[in-house]
Design a protein around this nucleic acid. Structure first.
Lengths: 157, 157
DNA sequence: ACCATATAGTCAAGCAGCTTGACTACGTTC
DNA sequence: GAACGTAGTCAAGCTGCTTGACTATATGGT
């Protein structure tokens, strides 16, 4: 239980197997959500848009906040906002209390897409529940919550 | 326990929280390995190279096999091989038994980089072990192994 | 009140990594 | 051995990102 244990209790190969499983699960989840959302009528979006929507959904965000969330430059975030605005998923509003900034908020279509993503995620997680059992799923959720960092979303590579 | 349960036992928001935690953990792991490998003297590589090395390490692979593993076209895989060959991490050899194909194998430098990645992964997983305990880590590994698919590696978005 | 500095956002140019299309060399099948 | 399939490369183009430069607004010290 001591910290900084130098005789690593984890073999390198074990660590790689665990890492590979985590990355495979994450990649598969992303792919499944992407496909499921596309199948529900939102085929003009990529996974990156979903991560943006996750930040925009609870009340909107500025371009700079979105850029920090996605881990890209604000120019890149601005281009992404241009795109989702053009496609009708979001709109730019004046920012209350800061005339420089603009608040990017989801439109009804953007919220519908977010709900679709939630449905697909629930579907996939439901499959996991069948594989792991309710308790196993709870344990997984708890473990991931402990090791998952806060901060910007990063690509799995 | 029955399959195809329509009254999903998992709330949408719960599924999104679990999904977000999984993707955050995967993104963080990728970032940590990338930084750790760079700090050990392999700063001219990106995460995608690591995924390629994982496929090349056990005996090499053809460009087409690598492309399937990475989920990209064989032209893209060929360009990636060009790059790691130019940087001294791999080399192209004649393929035994198929004169069309070429076997891409890691050089000693490539194997050293793979070992470095394993070390960093063990470091990160060691931190998880401190957060979860040995048993918690085992349960996580088991759960991920159950839900992780085989097949091509996919980007987390 | 004013000026210096910092921040929000955009415009423009360039680049890296991927795609599609076309092609050659070799293998496989009948 | 003729026809078709597969491995790999070359070439051109596109997309999403970067860096650099700029305007407009906000903030803080004097």
């Amino acid at each position: 239980m001591r910290q900084g244990c130098f005789n690593a209790p984890v073999q390198n190969s074990d660590a790689m197997a665990l890492s590979a499983a985590l990355l495979a699960a994450a990649g598969d989840l992303t792919q499944r959500i992407h496909e499921g959302v596309a199948a529900r009528g939102f085929a003009d979006l990529r996974p990156a848009h979903g991560f943006a929507f996750a930040r925009l959904a609870p009340g909107g965000a500025s371009v700079t906040e979105l850029a920090a969330h996605l881990g890209v430059t604000k120019q890149a975030a601005s281009q992404l906002v241009d795109e989702v605005v053009r496609k009708g998923y979001a709109e730019r509003r004046p920012h209350p209390g800061d005339a420089r900034a603009r608040l990017v908020v989801l439109t009804e279509r953007g919220r519908a897409c977010t709900r679709a993503a939630e449905e697909v995620a629930a579907e996939v997680v439901g499959e996991w529940a069948e594989l792991l059992g309710e308790q196993g799923l709870y344990v997984l959720r708890d473990a991931l919550a402990r090791i998952a960092p806060y901060g910007p979303v990063r690509p799995a590579w």
